[in-house]
Design a protein around this nucleic acid. Structure first.
Length: 1207
RNA sequence: GCCGGGGUGGCGGAAUUGGUAGACGCGACGGACUUAAAAUCCGUUGAACUUAUACUUCGUGAGGGUUCGAGUCCCUCCCUCGGCACCA
């Protein structure tokens, strides 16, 4: 045997697999399909990274296992090759991007093949191949030629769009263009001054370009856009139908950012600005309403806002427009401070997103002097501001500001001294315990005062301790008719505490609501509560009335202990007011100061106000998303050209399908232009074209697509990669889609994953694909960090190159390590020492082949029964049915019977076993047995069969004759079984004896030989009358056989290792299915360690082990498989199945605990009953120490685990 | 600030979902082999106590709770990673 050397086996097998195409997914196969997918790599100059391998290998393992499970597996690979890094490299090195791409792909292919993944290379695709991007362009044209039908909630061909009748040609075109799913828009985009490229919102990370890190600017440009927003709702809803990691779903939902609320229309009126009208009230609320006498209802003077809290409309005290809002321009002449406004707009425009968020700590804004808005619900005139905290791109670009209930508005209002009106107050409800409202009790409405009384000298407060009810509160009491808050508070303090001399300090917050079951009055309470603070002037005191104080006791509590002392939410709220810990109240509650909404809870107030707005045509229910349309233009060379012609007369005209692909023209210079146009704009010959519609002068679109385009549908192309007529045939799509398992990085959750789901839904709407979702299951791998725990990066110089580690330790070691390093989804630092450990493990397995019984191994397991006696054979076969047995008849060779020359059973038995074992090479058992009659000095004994002359009946008749008139009829059967091992000439013998007596005449004809005349002691029946079952209880041969069986069981290695093998099959199967590769490998290591301890390993077990290991380490297992003389690849074998019976231990270690602490362990049968377990446990010596002299209170028995004795 | 994941030996990580904490691997230490080293093999390896591999106690970010029993459940807090970040 050679030493394990990965270099000599890995390349060899990779080439063979390639040559035989064993991983090819067959279109014609009838097996169930399994489509597993990794994100196709971007072939950069840097080459593959050990991080790439992690997902490739993981899914490779799944693919290999699924193949062995009988699935027709498709595991394809391709190249996402358009994009900036290649273009930048091409510019730098003056090489054509095509060439750069080709070279990179070559290198990637070499690297990928070097670790032996089971990709189906026959389906390889490349997004920069015109045959591929033809279809990317085709899909773009479909988007261009479709609109979103809101009624049917799906995309439809643009011809089906209903165009309003009274439009002229130009207006019609404008109308149509604005409904296309791919449309053009002048817009401020994120612009990277370094890459000279427009960036999608998703490509801007913290205000910087995702690729080069330069600070992104804003630049207004004409852009192609895709209406992904039309799919926002469906992209959220359909997440329910797929199995994605929960965090992926949440991230997508958050990214799409759906919020439900209402739009509200605010009339705008002209008013000379009056400085005095501002009320600078700082913290205090001002609930006064200044109404407008003549609020006009005129749709031309309307600002619309979106809000998620229409219930707070009464609390809207000003309005804010985004600096870009069109209304500002409209009122240019009416705004008194327009120059100031323009200055602010200018400042905001130049702020990048980063600056805008950075400066968010301090709010800024300017009031539009000369105009006012009118709150439509209460006719109040409110000021209008512009501020950059309001975004032009979300909602309507304007907000109604409710400072009392929105943190940002609160901050702004405080800074600029704008009125704050509180319209929602908290409501407290008990959900658990004794305070929960009871439906069978009446509800009493009350006004309540909660007073806190400060000590005259110290910082402590007088509170009530409701002992019986477990409440701790301030001094509470109802406000009676005719009383005001202050009077009620004073009265309650005097009645309940006896203190007399106090002064009012201030009110604490507003009137919150409290609902609970008042046990002391046996009624439900709905109370309107308000806090009030008093301070004692001196200690004047009078004993209070007993009746008043029967439920509670007044106690002094120090200020710092109040938080812990107060038990009820409403009490804590008031206390927080006292301590000045108040912020704006953002949550739901009950409306106040809100006219017809008063006393409604938020959820109902929202419904009520929305209905009111709709009824009065002042607004309506509305939904808004954070998701923006997809900026689809790039001003670059290395991308798919957008197949649109711009005609002065006809506008945007799409190329016809037959003109696709629109190939990228060759250029000398790929550098982007400073105008922001793509380098394509410089190629006159290509740009200038006749309009396909009117044949007039026209120009091509020179923008290209972002590199998200090609990756938005590549998984569809894999299903039919060489189809020239369609992007994929219906048949192939039906066969393979949807993707069963898609693995990818978390960084693609909000970009690629969302975009590709969008395209797939679009194709679904048009009937090109059959499922609404492309991926059934989405999983994500964790990053491989550098050895120092940081991200691997060139600049840090801590990158691990897969080429080097594969060269040194082999693909199998690297594969195994990447899967063993930790949980698949976690980021784990690389550690080369651990990798070496994997190599050691593989060496161990390699060396195990020495212990595998090779040449004779298949004969060892089979046991030959060497007898020509059919009765004996039948009996033995029956006894040994759990073993793999052969009879002499099963052997083709004719073997002459040996002469039985031995003088004893033992000699003859050995002689026969040895003879046949040597002739056949099999493990052989032979039996020599006979009847010994005491009166005949043990005859016939070894001559029993010869005595009978080959005829059973003759034999016993002869014996009966000989024993006629003999009184001592005692006799015994004896049997000696020999098992002979021809490999080492070892043998073992097993003895069995059965005492009995000889009858006077034969009885029954069961059994064989002398059975009819032999009666066993204690059984009043001849063997001839016994059933086999009865006979077996006493039979001599059975006794020997039983000894043989227990010998075989103890000596066969596989019997000890078998349960572990089956446990391992179970665990590895389940773990791969759940992508828990690290624990699967750990289990395989446990099995390997156990097998290694054995002196011999059966070939069957070794094969099972190799099968289980093969998805992880395909090369070494294939090599060993071949060594075992297997002809077909191990990767084409079927996956081992476990025997559920063997997975369960017959005996387990039960833990004995005393008071939950482990004190002893005993071995018990699995099915032990609680009583038996208890008895056994109490017998334990170790336990004595812990339970002696103590009373056993309780015994807890957990089946198959432990017994816990509580003393 | 909000949303999500996590915190277990010297390190990567296991732990049947409430039932023996530390599987498996790395590293370290001791031993065998060797002229020597590497490789390999054997043993030990959470901490404390201890002649001891006996016994016991402590131990899963911190504090509290529920339970016969908590890494696992509940409450409060700290730290950390990822995502979002003025989205009205």
């Amino acid at each position: 045997m050679k030493k394990y050397n990965h270099k000599s086996i890995e390349k060899k097998w990779q080439d063979k697999w390639d040559e035989k195409e064993i991983y090819k997914a067959k279109g014609s196969s009838k097996k169930p399909k399994y489509y597993c997918l990794i994100e196709f790599p971007y072939p950069s100059g840097a080459g593959l990274h050990v991080g790439h391998l992690r997902s490739h290998i993981a899914i490779d393992i799944v693919a290999r296992k699924k193949r062995m499970n009988g699935f027709n597996v498709m595991y394809p690979i391709g190249w996402d090759a358009f994009g900036l890094p290649t273009e930048n490299f091409a510019i730098k090195t003056k090489t054509h991007p095509k060439v750069v791409t080709k070279n990179n792909i070559k290198n990637y292919t070499r690297q990928i093949k070097s670790y032996g993944p089971s990709f189906d290379w026959s389906r390889e695709i490349n997004t920069t191949d015109p045959e591929y991007y033809k279809w990317t362009q085709w899909i773009f044209l479909k988007l261009f030629n479709s609109f979103y039908d809101e009624k049917l909630d799906k995309a439809r061909p643009i011809e089906k769009l209903q165009i309003p009748k009274n439009l002229d040609e130009f207006e019609k075109r404008k109308y149509t263009d604005s409904h296309r799913l791919a449309y053009e828009k002048e817009m401020a985009i994120n612009w990277c001054p370094s890459c000279k490229i427009g960036l999608a919102n998703e490509e801007v990370i913290n205000g910087n370009c995702e690729r080069c890190g330069a600070l992104a600017e804003r630049k207004v440009m004409r852009q192609w856009m895709l209406k992904i927003t039309k799919y926002a709702d469906r992209l959220i809803q359909d997440l329910d139908t797929v199995d994605y990691l929960e965090k992926i779903k949440t991230q997508q939902v958050n990214w799409i950012g759906k919020s439900e609320g209402a739009t509200v229309k605010f009339p705008v009126i002209l008013r000379r600005h009056d400085e005095e009208s501002r009320t600078n009230t700082q913290n205090d609320f001002n609930n006064e309403i200044v109404t407008s006498q003549k609020a006009p209802r005129n749709d031309n003077n309307i600002v619309e806002v979106f809000t998620t809290r229409p219930d707070t409309l009464f609390g809207c005290t000003y309005m804010v427009l985004s600096p870009e809002h069109p209304l500002i321009e409209k009122y240019k002449n009416q705004i008194e401070n327009f120059s100031e406004i323009e200055k602010y707009q200018e400042k905001a425009r130049n702020k990048s997103d980063l600056e805008r968020t950075d400066l968010a700590k301090e709010k800024s804004g300017v009031e539009l002097k000369g105009i006012k808005a009118v709150n439509p619900v209460n006719q109040e005139e409110i000021p209008v501001w512009i501020a950059d905290y309001v975004l032009a791109s979300y909602g309507t670009g304007a907000i109604m500001a409710v400072p009392a209930h929105d943190e940002r508005d609160f901050e702004f209002a405080k800074k600029f001294g704008i009125k704050i009106r509180e319209v929602v107050v908290p409501i407290f409800k008990a959900f658990t315990g004794d305070n929960v409202l009871r439906s069978d009790k009446k509800t009493v409405h009350r006004k309540i005062v909660v007073a806190f009384l400060k000590h005259w000298k110290e910082d402590k407060y007088l509170c009530l301790d409701w002992k019986k009810f477990g409440w701790h509160s301030g001094i509470v009491g109802g406000i009676e008719n005719g009383e005001n808050l202050k009077e009620a508070a004073i009265r309650e303090i005097e009645e309940e505490t006896g203190y007399k001399n106090m002064k009012f300090v201030r009110n604490l917050g507003s009137e919150h609501r409290n609902t609970f079951f008042a046990r002391h009055k046996d009624e439900n309470r709905y109370s309107i509560e308000r806090g009030i603070l008093f301070e004692l002037i001196n200690d004047k005191w009078e004993k209070p009335n007993k009746e008043e104080t029967k439920n509670h006791e007044a106690v002094w509590i120090e200020a710092e202990k109040m938080d812990d002392f107060l038990t009820l939410g409403n009490q804590k709220l008031i206390w927080n007011h006292l301590k000045g810990k108040t912020a704006c109240f953002k949550e739901g509650g009950v409306n106040i100061n809100s006219g017809f909404l008063n006393e409604l809870e938020t959820i109902d107030a929202k419904k009520e106000i929305t209905a009111w707005l709709e009824k009065n045509k002042l607004g309506k229910k509305a939904v808004n998303f954070k998701l923006r349309d997809w900026v689809f233009s790039r001003q670059h060379y290395w991308g798919e050209p957008i197949p649109i012609v711009k005609c002065e007369k006809c506008g945007n005209v799409s190329l016809s399908e037959k003109d696709l692909p629109l190939k990228l023209p060759d250029v000398k210079n790929y550098e982007p232009t400073d105008t922001g146009e793509s380098p394509l704009a410089n190629i006159k010959k290509w740009v200038e074209i006749k309009c396909p519609k009117c044949n007039g002068n026209a120009k091509r679109e020179t923008d290209t697509m972002p590199n998200w385009a090609g990756s938005s549908w590549y998984f569809l192309r894999y299903t039919d990669p060489n189809n020239d007529d369609e992007f994929s045939s219906k048949k192939n799509l039906a066969k393979w889609m949807p993707v069963d398992l898609y693995n990818g990085g978390m960084e693609h959750t909000t970009l690629h994953l969302l975009y590709s789901r969008f395209w797939h839904k679009f194709l679904f709407d048009l009937g090109y694909v059959q499922s609404a979702e492309p991926y059934k299951m989405r999983r994500s791998h964790g990053m491989v960090l550098a050895e120092d725990g940081q991200k691997m990066s060139k600049s840090r110089g801590n990158v691990v190159n897969p080429d080097e580690v594969i060269e040194e330790y082999g693909a199998d070691s690297v594969r195994l390590y990447e899967m063993f390093m930790g949980p698949y989804g976690d980021a784990i630092p690389w550690n080369t020492s651990s990798l070496i450990g994997m190599n050691r493990f593989l060496q161990k397995i390699w060396n195990m082949q020495l212990k595998v019984l090779q040449n004779n191994s298949n004969k060892k397991e089979i046991i030959l029964i060497a007898t020509n006696n059919p009765g004996k054979l039948k009996e033995l076969k029956n006894h040994l049915k759990n073993f793999n047995i052969l009879s002499l008849k099963d052997i083709n060779k004719k073997i002459k019977e040996p002469e039985e020359t031995g003088k004893t059973f033992a000699e003859n038995s050995l002689l026969k076993a040895k003879y046949y074992a040597e002739k056949t090479g099999y493990f052989t058992i032979a039996d020599d047995s006979g009847l010994c009659v005491n009166a005949l000095d043990g005859r016939p004994g070894v001559f029993s069969s010869r005595y009978a002359e080959g005829d059973d009946k003759k034999g016993y008749i002869k014996l009966l004759k000989e024993l006629k008139n003999v009184s001592d009829r005692s006799a015994y059967f004896r049997s000696i079984i020999t098992i002979y091992n021809p490999e080492n000439n070892n043998y073992n013998q097993f003895d069995g004896k059965c005492d009995g007596k000889i009858l006077n005449k034969p009885e029954g004809d069961n059994g064989f030989g002398y059975d009819p005349v032999f009666m066993v002691n204690n059984l009043e029946k001849s063997f001839g009358l016994c059933s086999l079952e009865e006979k077996n209880k006493f039979d001599h041969r059975m006794k020997a056989v039983n000894k043989l069986i227990s010998y075989l069981k103890n000596n066969q290695a596989e019997n000890k290792i078998e349960p572990l093998i089956h446990k391992t099959i179970k665990k590895v199967t389940e773990d791969i299915d759940n992508l828990k590769f690290n624990t699967a490998i750990s289990q395989l290591m446990i099995l390997a360690n156990e097998m290694e301890k054995e002196t011999e390993i059966s070939i069957t077990n070794f094969k099972l082990f190799l099968n289980l290991l093969s998805p992880f380490v395909p090369h070494i297992t294939e090599e060993l498989w071949e060594t075992l003389k297997e002809k077909q690849s191990i990767h084409l074998q079927s996956w081992p199945k476990f025997n559920p019976e063997l997975v369960i231990d017959s005996e387990i270690t039960m833990v004995i605990q005393v008071n939950g602490k482990v004190r002893d362990q005993i071995k018990v049968p699995v099915e032990i009953s609680e009583d038996d377990a208890k008895k056994l446990a109490l017998r334990s010596d170790k336990l004595k120490k812990w339970i002696e002299g103590k009373e056993i209170r309780k015994v807890i028995f957990i089946k198959e685990r432990l017994i816990n004795i509580v003393v």
